[in-house]
């Protein structure tokens, strides 16, 4: 598991790219006050790739929308790319790239035209915009569809265009809101190759939200777990898993009596003849346990060892599984929409 990679030579200073203190957002919805984000503190250093993980409705997008100046916070403050989100939203907007949950390209616009318009939006000159657009079309493999209307693109192509639009002005910080949701596995993998590539070649700071466990696990250097509007854990995926979840070891015996006897020695839960134990370093403990139990006359018939996932972390933190939550999505934008009502 790569942690901090050593490829950020261009970012010698370790300034904070994002600092937030007590960021809070409450909505009024049908006469009730909904606390979408509750006093979130966060720090993202220059050059980091941080994932915001949590179920739908956890407040990830609302937090992102506050950091990107789309939504004014109810209270709290934040500095993004060196600018205050309340007092200098224009400064924030100039410095960041943002890829929202939806499709960023206008449906009747052509791909290349949208990139040119985007360059102009950021005050770039004509020649610079054209060169940059050509570069992005090339690197994000949009050449085949550059003259097509956005509405004719596939899901994966649209998402790559969104990334290109977010990068036109070479932002130092890129926000990605659920970048791979709704994509087929192939397009997802392809999109991630592009994002990893971008990181390696430019050292851009990336802050993203996802509810895909494997995505956060494999790609982010740091994972912030969010639930019910609050950040409940913040560390590397590796540290979260080893400190909060531990390995899961199951041992099967010839009888329930043996399993109970083994559980009284090692500790663990029994279900019939199967004993389950969660422990750090379970992989190393397993052979020792089998040996010790055998010496005591308790023969292990079958054994499994499973490394913890971020889902186990979420389960340990909240008592709920993130997989179940992801299976029944609650549309988060519904809350967001009620904001200005």
């Amino acid at each position: 598991m790569p942690r901090k990679t050593g490829d950020m030579t261009n970012h010698t200073h370790s300034a904070q790219m994002i600092t937030a203190r007590g960021l809070t957002k409450t909505f009024r919805s049908k006469g009730q006050t909904v606390e979408a984000v509750r006093a979130v503190d966060l720090e993202v250093a220059d050059g980091e790739l941080v994932a915001f993980l949590g179920p739908n409705g956890a407040g990830k997008s609302t937090t992102l929308r506050m950091l990107t100046t789309l939504l004014p916070p109810t209270s709290g403050e934040a500095s993004v790319a060196g600018c205050d989100i309340r007092h200098d939203p224009a400064g924030v907007r100039r410095r960041i790239g943002y890829v929202g949950q939806g499709s960023s390209g206008g449906h009747t616009q052509r791909v290349r035209d949208e990139l040119h318009a985007q360059g102009a939006f950021y005050g770039m000159g004509r020649r610079e915009t054209r060169a940059r657009a050509a570069e992005l079309i090339e690197s994000l493999e949009l050449g085949q569809v550059a003259n097509r209307q956005v509405q004719a693109l596939s899901g994966g192509q649209k998402r790559r265009l969104d990334i290109a639009l977010g990068l036109i002005h070479r932002p130092e910080l890129l926000f990605l809101d659920e970048p791979s949701t709704g994509l087929d596995p192939h397009s997802r993998a392809n999109l991630w190759d592009h994002i990893v590539d971008l990181r390696r070649s430019t050292g851009t700071t990336i802050f993203l939200t996802t509810h895909y466990l494997d995505e956060a696990d494999q790609l982010a250097e740091r994972v912030m777990v969010m639930d019910h509007g609050a950040v409940i854990a913040d560390d590397t995926a590796w540290a979260l898993k080893s400190s909060l979840a531990g390995d899961r070891v199951t041992l099967e015996f010839g009888s329930a009596t043996d399993a109970a006897a083994a559980a009284s020695r090692i500790g663990g839960a029994i279900d019939g003849a199967v004993m389950t134990v969660t422990a750090q370093g379970g992989d190393r403990a397993l052979p020792r346990w089998i040996r010790e139990l055998s010496d005591a006359g308790l023969e292990v018939v079958a054994a499994t060892h499973r490394q913890p996932t971020l889902d186990d972390v979420f389960l340990a933190l909240t008592g709920r599984s993130l997989r179940e939550e992801a299976a029944t999505p609650v549309p988060e934008p519904a809350v967001t929409t009620a904001a200005a009502a």
């Binding site: 990107t68 100046t69 789309l70 224009a90 907007r93 100039r94 960041i96 943002y98 929202g100 949950q101 939806g102 499709s103 960023s104 390209g105 206008g106 449906h107 009747t108 985007q118 939006f121 950021y122 005050g123 639009l165």
Partner: peptide, 20 residues
Amino acid sequence: ANLLFEMQTGSHERTLVAPL
């Protein structure tokens, strides 16, 4: 109706994040 559609797809949001 064009704007309405762009608000629903996310294209309008993109212009709101741009320094315009």
